[in-house]
């Protein structure tokens, strides 16, 4: 990607973050924003910036960056432009965990997040086990197939769980599955950021392996990469990254699918470049989508997952047309 593209991406990110901080039902002045950013919140509008908007923007940045990086790694490793984090059983497992916690009436503030993360972790482990059980074909096609199967099983489990649940719980579970940043707080941002930084570091470190894997199994093996082991490691890291974002914000679809394609269209060549570019573009997309989710139908909010698709699809199509 050229310097101009990088600058444009960062400017877009800074712009949407700034707009997100000043947009909302409570009017805030620039001084309130600055006070909120510094933590000198008081009791007025600056407190709204510090306690509501800032964690929300921060969560959007990490969720967007995490999903997009996860998508880049998975698409490159599986050599499948339609691969996305949710294809690998992560979303289904996380949703089962969240629904179980909701129906069980867990009252701890982080109960749903932890249950969703645990559910996603179990699903990822199951995917790896199922793929390994298939023996010689334990490469990327086996992982994708196992992910689809585990995902279908998880979806069936969700339906069974929700079939007998009270309507309010069904509503809460559905809202969770549609994705939202409305529950953002600093604790969630902090743990997700830790997971995202570690996972991102790991993916960047494995950048060369991802590049080689994207050439095909035979070529990768000829270049000295242990295909199965490398594929599984990248898959695990990408899946954990996606699982963490799902646990924190529910299912925010489309980002992991389309942002990698966008950065490739913007000229990303190596996996590392694509990972970093996708992180910036994904973060900008999710924060922008959250602004729309907050204001489009105020005082109600739209599901974030729907808005990311509504914003991302036209942009994606325009970018594809331009690239051609």
């Amino acid at each position: 990607m050229t310097v101009r593209v990088w600058v444009a991406l960062f400017v877009a990110l800074a712009l949407v973050a700034a707009v997100a901080l000043v947009t909302g039902p409570v009017p805030v002045a620039l001084a309130d924003v600055l006070a909120g950013l510094r933590g000198h919140a008081g009791n007025g509008a600056a407190l709204v910036v510090h306690n509501i908007r800032l964690p929300r923007v921060a969560l959007g940045l990490v969720v967007g960056a995490g999903l997009a990086m996860s998508g880049v790694a998975l698409q490159a490793t599986t050599r499948n432009p339609l691969a996305e984090p949710y294809l690998l059983g992560v979303s289904g497992g996380a949703a089962v965990g969240a629904v179980v916690a909701t129906i069980a009436g867990a009252s701890h503030p982080m109960a749903v997040e932890l249950a969703a993360f645990a559910g996603a972790g179990i699903a990822v482990a199951a995917v790896v086990l199922v793929a390994s059980a298939s023996g010689a074909a334990a490469g990327s096609p086996a992982l994708v197939m196992a992910g689809v199967v585990i995902g279908a099983f998880a979806n069936a489990a969700i339906l069974v769980l929700l079939a007998g649940a009270p309507s309010a719980m069904v509503r809460d579970a559905l809202w969770w599955m549609m994705g939202s940043l409305s529950g953002a707080d600093w604790r969630t941002v902090a743990w997700l950021a830790v997971v995202a930084i570690v996972a991102a570091g790991e993916l960047l470190r494995a950048g060369r392996e991802i590049d080689v894997l994207s050439l095909g199994d035979d070529a990768a093996a000829a270049l000295g990469v242990e295909v199965e082991r490398a594929t599984r490691r990248v898959f695990l890291v990408a899946a954990i990254l996606a699982a963490a974002t799902v646990a924190a914000a529910g299912l925010v679809g489309f980002v992991g699918l389309v942002v990698p394609a966008i950065v490739r269209a913007l000229g990303a060549r190596s996996s590392r470049e694509a990972l970093l570019g996708a992180a910036v573009a994904g973060a900008a997309l999710v924060v922008a989508a959250d602004i729309v989710a907050r204001v489009a139908r105020a005082p109600a909010e739209l599901p974030l997952g729907a808005v990311t698709a509504l914003i991302g699809v036209p942009f994606f199509l325009a970018r594809m047309r331009h690239a051609r």
């Binding site: 909302g24 509501i52 409305s182 105020a298 005082p299």
Partner: peptide, 16 residues
């Protein structure tokens, strides 16, 4: 002012 039985709103709207 919201006619729906259980409208979904933001905390900021409550602040306002």
């Amino acid at each position: 002012d919201l006619a729906a039985p259980s409208p979904q709103v933001s905390i900021e709207e409550v602040v306002r």
